Computed example of a mutant assay.
Amino acid sequence: AAKEKAYAAMQEALKNLEAAKDAASPEKIAEIDTKIAIFQENYDTNLAQAAIYKESLPTMQANVDAAQAECDKAHNRTRALEAELNKIDYTTPAETIRQLQEAITEAIMQEDFCEDKLEHCRMRLESHKSLINFFESEVEFNKTHLDGETAKRDALLDDLKRAQIAYDDACKAYEEAKAAADKAASPEITQPTETTKPSSSAQPAETAQPASSPATGKGATPSSTKQANASSGKPGKLANTGDTAPSAIALAAVAAAGLGITATATRRIKNSK
Protein backbone atom coordinates (compact mmCIF):
# COMPACT_ATOMS: atom_id res chain seq x y z
CA ALA A 1 0.00 0.00 0.00
CA ALA A 2 2.84 2.38 0.80
CA LYS A 3 4.43 1.68 -2.58
CA GLU A 4 1.19 2.38 -4.48
CA LYS A 5 0.58 5.53 -2.46
CA ALA A 6 4.11 6.77 -3.15
CA TYR A 7 3.68 5.98 -6.85
CA ALA A 8 0.41 7.94 -7.00
CA ALA A 9 2.11 10.87 -5.25
CA MET A 10 4.96 10.72 -7.75
CA GLN A 11 2.52 10.76 -10.68
CA GLU A 12 0.67 13.74 -9.19
CA ALA A 13 3.98 15.56 -8.68
CA LEU A 14 4.92 14.81 -12.29
CA LYS A 15 1.58 16.21 -13.47
CA ASN A 16 2.15 19.40 -11.48
CA LEU A 17 5.70 19.66 -12.83
CA GLU A 18 4.51 19.38 -16.43
CA ALA A 19 1.89 22.08 -15.80
CA ALA A 20 4.52 24.34 -14.21
CA LYS A 21 6.87 23.77 -17.15
CA ASP A 22 4.11 24.67 -19.59
CA ALA A 23 3.22 27.83 -17.66
CA ALA A 24 6.88 28.84 -17.38
CA SER A 25 7.94 27.79 -20.86
CA PRO A 26 10.83 29.75 -22.43
CA GLU A 27 8.44 31.35 -24.93
CA LYS A 28 6.08 32.63 -22.23
CA ILE A 29 8.94 33.84 -20.05
CA ALA A 30 10.44 35.65 -23.06
CA GLU A 31 7.07 37.29 -23.74
CA ILE A 32 6.84 38.47 -20.15
CA ASP A 33 10.43 39.73 -20.27
CA THR A 34 9.57 41.77 -23.39
CA LYS A 35 6.67 43.41 -21.56
CA ILE A 36 8.89 44.07 -18.56
CA ALA A 37 11.47 45.75 -20.80
CA ILE A 38 8.81 47.99 -22.39
CA PHE A 39 7.29 48.99 -19.08
CA GLN A 40 10.74 49.60 -17.63
CA GLU A 41 11.70 51.88 -20.53
CA ASN A 42 8.43 53.84 -20.31
CA TYR A 43 8.81 54.10 -16.57
CA ASP A 44 12.33 55.51 -16.83
CA THR A 45 11.39 57.96 -19.62
CA ASN A 46 8.32 59.37 -17.89
CA LEU A 47 10.11 59.55 -14.57
CA ALA A 48 12.89 61.59 -16.20
CA GLN A 49 10.40 63.92 -17.92
CA ALA A 50 8.48 64.48 -14.71
CA ALA A 51 11.73 65.32 -12.97
CA ILE A 52 12.66 67.87 -15.68
CA TYR A 53 9.32 69.64 -15.49
CA LYS A 54 9.42 69.63 -11.74
CA GLU A 55 12.76 71.43 -11.83
CA SER A 56 11.24 74.44 -13.66
CA LEU A 57 8.09 74.45 -11.57
CA PRO A 58 9.40 76.85 -8.88
CA THR A 59 10.51 79.36 -11.54
CA MET A 60 7.15 79.28 -13.25
CA GLN A 61 5.38 79.69 -9.94
CA ALA A 62 7.60 82.72 -9.24
CA ASN A 63 6.61 84.20 -12.62
CA VAL A 64 2.97 83.85 -11.72
CA ASP A 65 3.54 85.50 -8.37
CA ALA A 66 5.41 88.39 -10.02
CA ALA A 67 2.69 88.86 -12.63
CA GLN A 68 0.10 88.82 -9.89
CA ALA A 69 2.01 91.56 -8.04
CA GLU A 70 2.23 93.73 -11.18
CA CYS A 71 -1.44 93.19 -11.82
CA ASP A 72 -2.32 94.21 -8.29
CA LYS A 73 -0.11 97.31 -8.61
CA ALA A 74 -1.74 98.36 -11.88
CA HIS A 75 -5.17 97.78 -10.45
CA ASN A 76 -4.40 99.92 -7.39
CA ARG A 77 -3.06 102.74 -9.62
CA THR A 78 -6.20 102.70 -11.69
CA ARG A 79 -8.39 102.81 -8.60
CA ALA A 80 -6.34 105.69 -7.17
CA LEU A 81 -6.59 107.78 -10.37
CA GLU A 82 -10.30 107.15 -10.59
CA ALA A 83 -10.70 108.26 -6.98
CA GLU A 84 -8.74 111.43 -7.69
CA LEU A 85 -10.85 112.18 -10.74
CA ASN A 86 -13.98 111.78 -8.70
CA LYS A 87 -12.77 114.46 -6.29
CA ILE A 88 -12.53 117.29 -8.84
CA ASP A 89 -15.16 120.00 -8.99
CA TYR A 90 -16.18 122.66 -11.43
CA THR A 91 -13.23 124.78 -10.39
CA THR A 92 -10.69 122.20 -11.58
CA PRO A 93 -8.99 123.25 -14.79
CA ALA A 94 -9.93 121.30 -17.87
CA GLU A 95 -6.28 120.45 -18.55
CA THR A 96 -5.99 118.75 -15.18
CA ILE A 97 -9.13 116.79 -15.83
CA ARG A 98 -7.80 115.75 -19.26
CA GLN A 99 -4.49 114.59 -17.77
CA LEU A 100 -6.27 112.55 -15.09
CA GLN A 101 -8.45 110.92 -17.69
CA GLU A 102 -5.42 110.05 -19.82
CA ALA A 103 -3.60 108.67 -16.77
CA ILE A 104 -6.60 106.54 -15.88
CA THR A 105 -6.75 105.21 -19.44
CA GLU A 106 -3.07 104.29 -19.38
CA ALA A 107 -3.49 102.69 -15.94
CA ILE A 108 -6.39 100.62 -17.20
CA MET A 109 -4.34 99.55 -20.22
CA GLN A 110 -1.44 98.62 -17.95
CA GLU A 111 -3.81 96.75 -15.71
CA ASP A 112 -5.18 94.82 -18.69
CA PHE A 113 -1.65 94.03 -19.82
CA CYS A 114 -0.72 92.78 -16.36
CA GLU A 115 -3.84 90.69 -16.20
CA ASP A 116 -3.05 89.15 -19.59
CA LYS A 117 0.49 88.46 -18.46
CA LEU A 118 -0.78 86.96 -15.24
CA GLU A 119 -3.21 84.78 -17.15
CA HIS A 120 -0.44 83.65 -19.48
CA CYS A 121 1.83 82.76 -16.57
CA ARG A 122 -0.98 80.95 -14.86
CA MET A 123 -1.80 78.98 -18.00
CA ARG A 124 1.84 78.00 -18.43
CA LEU A 125 2.01 76.97 -14.82
CA GLU A 126 -1.18 74.93 -15.05
CA SER A 127 -0.01 73.32 -18.29
CA HIS A 128 3.29 72.56 -16.63
CA LYS A 129 1.53 71.00 -13.69
CA SER A 130 -0.71 69.01 -16.03
CA LEU A 131 2.34 67.63 -17.81
CA ILE A 132 3.91 66.74 -14.49
CA ASN A 133 0.70 64.99 -13.47
CA PHE A 134 0.63 63.17 -16.81
CA PHE A 135 4.22 61.98 -16.49
CA GLU A 136 3.65 60.96 -12.90
CA SER A 137 0.52 59.03 -13.86
CA GLU A 138 2.50 57.31 -16.62
CA VAL A 139 5.20 56.54 -14.12
CA GLU A 140 2.62 55.02 -11.79
CA PHE A 141 0.95 53.11 -14.63
CA ASN A 142 4.19 51.63 -15.93
CA LYS A 143 5.42 50.95 -12.41
CA THR A 144 2.24 49.02 -11.60
CA HIS A 145 2.48 46.89 -14.75
CA LEU A 146 6.23 46.51 -14.36
CA ASP A 147 5.80 45.18 -10.84
CA GLY A 148 2.90 42.99 -11.93
CA GLU A 149 4.77 41.38 -14.83
CA THR A 150 7.89 40.95 -12.72
CA ALA A 151 5.89 39.31 -9.93
CA LYS A 152 4.14 37.10 -12.50
CA ARG A 153 7.45 35.94 -13.98
CA ASP A 154 8.99 35.34 -10.56
CA ALA A 155 5.90 33.42 -9.42
CA LEU A 156 6.00 31.16 -12.48
CA LEU A 157 9.70 30.45 -12.00
CA ASP A 158 9.19 29.84 -8.27
CA ASP A 159 6.30 27.46 -9.01
CA LEU A 160 8.51 25.60 -11.47
CA LYS A 161 11.30 25.36 -8.92
CA ARG A 162 8.95 24.12 -6.19
CA ALA A 163 7.33 21.62 -8.58
CA GLN A 164 10.76 20.26 -9.54
CA ILE A 165 11.75 19.88 -5.88
CA ALA A 166 8.42 18.20 -5.06
CA TYR A 167 8.85 15.79 -7.96
CA ASP A 168 12.41 14.93 -6.93
CA ASP A 169 11.23 14.29 -3.36
CA ALA A 170 8.33 12.15 -4.63
CA CYS A 171 10.69 10.08 -6.78
CA LYS A 172 12.99 9.56 -3.82
CA ALA A 173 10.06 8.55 -1.60
CA TYR A 174 8.84 6.12 -4.24
CA GLU A 175 12.26 4.53 -4.61
CA GLU A 176 12.46 4.09 -0.84
CA ALA A 177 8.95 2.60 -0.67
CA LYS A 178 9.71 0.30 -3.61
CA ALA A 179 12.93 -0.90 -1.99
CA ALA A 180 11.10 -1.56 1.29
CA ALA A 181 8.34 -3.47 -0.52
CA ASP A 182 10.84 -5.56 -2.49
CA LYS A 183 12.74 -6.36 0.68
CA ALA A 184 9.56 -7.41 2.48
CA ALA A 185 8.47 -9.62 -0.46
CA SER A 186 11.80 -11.49 -0.82
CA PRO A 187 12.40 -14.46 1.62
CA GLU A 188 15.15 -14.07 4.11
CA ILE A 189 18.24 -16.15 3.32
CA THR A 190 19.37 -18.01 6.44
CA GLN A 191 22.98 -18.98 6.80
CA PRO A 192 23.61 -22.74 7.44
CA THR A 193 24.74 -23.65 10.93
CA GLU A 194 28.37 -24.61 10.96
CA THR A 195 29.04 -28.21 12.11
CA THR A 196 31.71 -28.55 14.70
CA LYS A 197 34.36 -30.85 13.38
CA PRO A 198 35.56 -33.53 15.81
CA SER A 199 38.99 -32.99 17.13
CA SER A 200 41.76 -35.18 15.87
CA SER A 201 42.09 -36.79 19.31
CA ALA A 202 38.47 -38.07 19.38
CA GLN A 203 38.44 -41.33 17.39
CA PRO A 204 35.23 -43.28 16.70
CA ALA A 205 34.75 -46.36 18.83
CA GLU A 206 35.65 -49.62 17.09
CA THR A 207 32.80 -52.02 16.27
CA ALA A 208 32.96 -55.18 18.31
CA GLN A 209 33.77 -58.18 16.13
CA PRO A 210 31.73 -61.40 16.56
CA ALA A 211 33.30 -64.19 18.53
CA SER A 212 33.76 -66.33 15.45
CA SER A 213 34.11 -65.33 11.86
CA PRO A 214 32.30 -66.93 8.91
CA ALA A 215 35.59 -68.41 7.77
CA THR A 216 35.95 -70.65 10.85
CA GLY A 217 32.29 -71.80 10.89
CA LYS A 218 32.39 -71.88 14.66
CA GLY A 219 30.22 -69.90 17.03
CA ALA A 220 26.94 -69.81 18.86
CA THR A 221 23.80 -70.68 16.92
CA PRO A 222 21.44 -67.71 16.53
CA SER A 223 18.50 -67.63 18.93
CA SER A 224 15.99 -67.67 16.08
CA THR A 225 17.49 -70.90 14.74
CA LYS A 226 17.32 -72.53 18.16
CA GLN A 227 13.64 -71.58 18.53
CA ALA A 228 12.81 -73.07 15.14
CA ASN A 229 14.54 -76.36 16.01
CA ALA A 230 12.78 -76.50 19.37
CA SER A 231 9.35 -76.02 17.82
CA SER A 232 9.89 -78.85 15.30
CA GLY A 233 11.03 -81.26 17.98
CA LYS A 234 14.00 -82.17 15.83
CA PRO A 235 17.45 -80.91 16.00
CA GLY A 236 17.99 -78.83 12.93
CA LYS A 237 21.19 -77.31 11.68
CA LEU A 238 21.35 -73.99 9.82
CA ALA A 239 24.31 -72.50 8.13
CA ASN A 240 26.01 -70.20 10.52
CA THR A 241 26.41 -66.82 8.82
CA GLY A 242 28.33 -65.31 11.65
CA ASP A 243 25.64 -62.60 12.07
CA THR A 244 23.24 -62.19 14.97
CA ALA A 245 20.22 -62.04 12.57
CA PRO A 246 19.12 -65.30 10.77
CA SER A 247 20.09 -65.59 7.12
CA ALA A 248 17.66 -66.30 4.29
CA ILE A 249 18.62 -70.01 4.31
CA ALA A 250 17.92 -70.26 8.03
CA LEU A 251 14.50 -68.67 7.63
CA ALA A 252 13.65 -71.08 4.80
CA ALA A 253 14.64 -74.03 6.96
CA VAL A 254 12.43 -72.83 9.77
CA ALA A 255 9.47 -72.49 7.40
CA ALA A 256 10.05 -76.00 5.98
CA ALA A 257 10.22 -77.52 9.45
CA GLY A 258 6.92 -75.87 10.34
CA LEU A 259 5.25 -77.33 7.25
CA GLY A 260 6.60 -80.79 8.08
CA ILE A 261 5.13 -80.70 11.58
CA THR A 262 1.73 -79.65 10.22
CA ALA A 263 1.67 -82.54 7.68
CA THR A 264 2.63 -85.17 10.30
CA ALA A 265 -0.10 -83.98 12.64
CA THR A 266 -2.68 -84.23 9.87
CA ARG A 267 -1.72 -87.85 9.05
CA ARG A 268 -1.92 -88.86 12.70
CA ILE A 269 -5.45 -87.47 12.99
CA LYS A 270 -6.60 -89.41 9.90
CA ASN A 271 -5.04 -92.70 11.14
CA SER A 272 -6.73 -92.36 14.50
CA LYS A 273 -10.11 -92.15 12.82
Rank of each mutant, 00 (worst) to 15 (best):
A1Q: 09
A2I: 01
K5H: 15
K5Y: 15
K5D: 15
Y7W: 05
M10D: 04
E12S: 15
L14I: 05
L14V: 01
N16H: 15
L17H: 11
A20G: 05
S25N: 14
P26L: 09
P26E: 12
I29M: 13
I36W: 09
A37P: 08
I38R: 09
Q40L: 10
E41L: 12
E41R: 15
N42E: 07
T45E: 10
N46R: 02
A48N: 04
A48D: 01
M60V: 02
N63D: 04
Q68I: 02
A69I: 08
E70G: 06
D72H: 10
A74D: 03
T78I: 09
R79E: 14
E82L: 14
A83E: 07
L85K: 10
I88E: 10
D89K: 09
D89I: 05
D89R: 07
T91D: 08
A94G: 06
E95N: 10
E95M: 07
E95R: 14
R98C: 00
R98T: 03
Q99M: 00
E102G: 03
I104P: 00
T105W: 10
E106M: 02
M109E: 13
M109P: 01
D112P: 01
D112S: 07
F113S: 08
E119V: 00
H120K: 13
C121W: 00
R124C: 00
E126V: 00
S127A: 06
S127H: 12
S130K: 06
L131K: 05
L131V: 04
N133C: 03
F134S: 05
E136H: 14
E136F: 13
S137L: 09
E138F: 03
V139G: 03
V139L: 04
H145Q: 13
D147H: 10
E149I: 02
T150M: 13
K152W: 14
D154G: 03
L156N: 06
D158E: 15
L160E: 08
K161P: 00
K161C: 06
R162C: 15
I165C: 04
I165S: 15
A166F: 12
D169A: 15
C171A: 08
K172P: 05
K172F: 12
K183P: 09
A185L: 07
P187G: 04
E188W: 12
I189F: 14
I189V: 15
P192A: 06
T193V: 12
T195F: 15
P198E: 07
P198Q: 06
S199D: 11
S200T: 00
Q203T: 05
Q203I: 01
E206L: 09
T207E: 14
A208N: 11
S213C: 11
T216K: 14
G217F: 07
K218H: 06
A220H: 12
T221E: 04
S223F: 10
S224K: 06
Q227E: 13
A228W: 02
N229Q: 04
A230N: 13
A230G: 11
S232A: 05
K234L: 08
K234Y: 12
K237I: 08
T241G: 06
T241I: 02
T244Y: 12
P246D: 01
A248V: 03
A253V: 00
A253F: 02
V254E: 02
V254D: 01
V254C: 03
A256C: 08
A256M: 09
G258N: 13
G258I: 10
G258F: 07
G260L: 04
G260K: 11
I261Q: 09
I261K: 14
T262Y: 13
R267N: 07
R267Y: 14
R267F: 14
R268I: 14
K273C: 01
